[in-house]
């Protein structure tokens, strides 16, 4: 009896010791990465959210006062901000969607038995590897109304040149094309990897059943790629919505604010108008908006996929 009585506590003690050792181990593994995350990501993020509720400016020795929802109320009536928000949605939505379509087509081609696949794969890396600033510089040259190759080609066919980035009607589409160009590689690579994991038997079985290429794509390829497609479009949308460098160098939001996506608009508010409280409030609204759009999209997608499976 007595021996049992003494054994039990020792056992729990040993277990507790092990658990504690494991926890300490975990802490030691995690701390080095956690520190910078806390200092340079969590703290700024929290204070960024908080700044939105203040009247902070970048004046010398500026006082900061808590003003509650003042910035957000002002923001509600700020039609220029909402205009920019709309442009952001159009930009990010079109880029995400068009990238998906183009990348899907390219991935299908690369997954087939064509020659020149290797060359295409190598070339497809170019947009991925180019720094955004360089992408913007190149496309500014291509879109140049006087000496750009695009208008040069049009002229050969007798079509008058277009002022791509300067004209109000073409600026946003032109910028979207650049966004798609730069987004194709990454999406293609992911889709391609997804396609390669679909077993060949499935396709062959379907082919034996007399299904054509289009039907096979629709009924086999597309459903199996669904999770990847959802993830990729969602990520693309977020990245594009938050992107800054490409458009900043391409158009700086011009002409007449036609390509003024929200990050640019907020940047101007913070570092030109020096109203960082108000700019942070804009950032807060953008975060909430993205999360809202994203959750709607994801919920909708998952509901659909459940429905189609049932």
């Amino acid at each position: 009896m007595s021996s049992v009585a003494t054994k039990v506590p020792r056992q729990t003690k040993r277990v507790g010791h092990r658990a504690r050792a494991q926890r300490r181990e975990a802490v030691a593994l995690v701390i080095p990465a956690l520190l910078p995350i806390i200092i340079f990501s969590v703290i700024p993020l929290a204070s960024g959210v908080a700044l939105g509720f203040t009247d902070a400016t970048l004046k010398r020795n500026a006082e900061i006062n808590f003003i509650g929802f003042g910035n957000f109320i002002e923001l509600l009536g700020d039609h220029r901000f909402w205009g920019s928000f709309g442009i952001g949605i159009v930009w990010a939505g079109s880029v995400a969607l068009l990238t998906l379509v183009c990348a899907m087509a390219l991935a299908l081609l690369l997954n087939s038995d064509l020659r020149l696949k290797g060359l295409t794969r190598v070339l497809a890396l170019i947009p991925w590897a180019m720094p955004p600033v360089v992408i913007a510089i190149v496309w500014r040259m291509i879109y140049n109304p006087n000496s750009g190759p695009l208008n040069g080609a049009l002229e050969v066919f007798g079509i008058p040149g277009v002022n791509w980035l300067g004209d109000f009607s073409t600026a946003l589409p032109a910028v979207i094309v650049v966004g798609v160009w730069s987004g194709i590689p990454q999406t293609t690579v992911l889709l391609l990897a997804g396609m390669q994991s679909i077993s060949a038997e499935q396709h062959e079985a379907a082919a034996v059943d007399g299904a054509g290429a289009i039907r096979r794509f629709w009924h086999i390829t597309l459903p199996s790629l669904r999770p990847i497609i959802i993830a990729v479009t969602a990520l693309d949308f977020i990245w594009q919505f938050n992107s800054f460098g490409l458009i900043y160098v391409l158009t700086e939001g011009g002409p007449g604010g036609r390509t003024m996506i929200p990050p640019l608009f907020t940047y101007l508010e913070a570092f030109r108008n020096r109203e960082i409280g108000y700019a942070s409030a804009m950032g807060d609204v953008l975060v909430i908006a993205i999360m809202l759009i994203l959750s709607l999209y994801l919920v909708n997608q998952f509901r659909q996929s459940k429905g189609s499976r049932a």
Binding site: I43, P44, P262, L286
Partner: peptide, 12 residues
């Protein structure tokens, strides 16, 4: 991934 760097940059 969701947070725009524009929100973080000011406090950062």
């Amino acid at each position: 991934q969701v947070f725009p760097s524009i929100l973080i940059i000011i406090p950062l």
